[in-house]
Design a binder for these strands. Sequence first.
DNA 1: TTATTTATCCATCAAACGATTGAATCGCAG
DNA 2: CTGCGATTCAATCGTTTGATGGATAAATAA
Lengths: 210, 210
Amino acid sequence: MSTPLEKARRDPESMKARILDVSRRIFGEYGFHGTTTRMIAQEVGIDISTLHYHWGGKKDLYESVVIDINKDLRQKLIEVEQRIHSLPLGERLDISIDMTTDYLFEHPEVSNLILFRYFGKTRSDGNLDAIIPEFTADIARSMGLALDKKNVPPETMMKVLAVMNSIHNFISGENFFRPMVKADRERYIALVKETLKFILIPAFTQNEAI
Amino acid sequence: MSTPLEKARRDPESMKARILDVSRRIFGEYGFHGTTTRMIAQEVGIDISTLHYHWGGKKDLYESVVIDINKDLRQKLIEVEQRIHSLPLGERLDISIDMTTDYLFEHPEVSNLILFRYFGKTRSDGNLDAIIPEFTADIARSMGLALDKKNVPPETMMKVLAVMNSIHNFISGENFFRPMVKADRERYIALVKETLKFILIPAFTQNEAI
DNA sequence: TTATTTATCCATCAAACGATTGAATCGCAG
DNA sequence: CTGCGATTCAATCGTTTGATGGATAAATAA
């Protein structure tokens, strides 16, 4: 057995995959209600009925998109963790911020969609994000703030959320913030990293031996 | 001369004001596209045509809402600044976080709408947020990071944005984050303040004399 | 070859949505 | 009371939106 999402990801050239990729971007920009199936179909260059043929309906497609970006993000987190594992905390943070920021600037729809789900309601919405608490606990462990990913204390969860949100904010708000600081894209990315490190590193290293 | 918004705010019992208040909340929850004029009308307990009579149309109403919440936030910032003016930086941050957090938890639609405008696109959207850069510069000065609100350097703007966004995130994401940390509302508010201070205060006081 | 499955588009539907119109109602000055 | 502006609602219009059915062609199997 295999879900439509798995099929799509096996063949990146398939129509399923093309629709999924465009959907990620447009759902990320306009949110669920702001996106129409016609917008997606037009961008892919197909008829709406073809979209329905492959994905069943708008809501099914949206759910697949959410699952897909969660998979991607989780994959990236594993990658980051392998890279920083067994380094001192300050360095772990530094490298994590660099890697995560670079990745998300290349795939801003990931941040967009996550923030949409955090802050916006959908008129009819199931609980699709049971994964997020697990993510957060994983990151807590990876940052050395918790020993295992069960029973992470609330204070720690909150700190991790603050870190992740700060990153997503700058990625997803680029169109809004970048003109404010009059920077080109490259400079903006540098400013984001610098700011994140300025804010985050002192907080988590303040009680550490130097 | 007086705009519909000013009229509404002069008489809080007026239909204009009632519609505006409900609109703030619903636009904040569902965003522009996720909100229908019928949802607002039903919540107020009136017919849609009455809504159109007072506010012209969905878009006009939405713009009034955005202007209204910006006015409120600016007013609050002035209030905060008067309270903290001439205190040492650490204390300024501490009190600012407390006051701003309390205010926003009482009016979460302010955070909701601001984040919606940062991260989401509306299919046709003018530039309605020319005020935000001024806000940000104001806060920078109020935090003692800039001497006057002209020519605030990009690095400083970014830091202020990071601070404000972190606050908005926890307010607006309450429905998502609070179950994750298994806290009741009161406890959640305390956790938010604690986390914000943990993250922010060390960063801004690290180079200060103690 | 023929038959069957897969994939795509065209035409169209029903529901939902933003908006308007015209009549009814209210408050109040003359 | 009368007249009039301000306000409200019921009914409805035109459009958009999500979704479907049927024809068609290409690929695949028999």
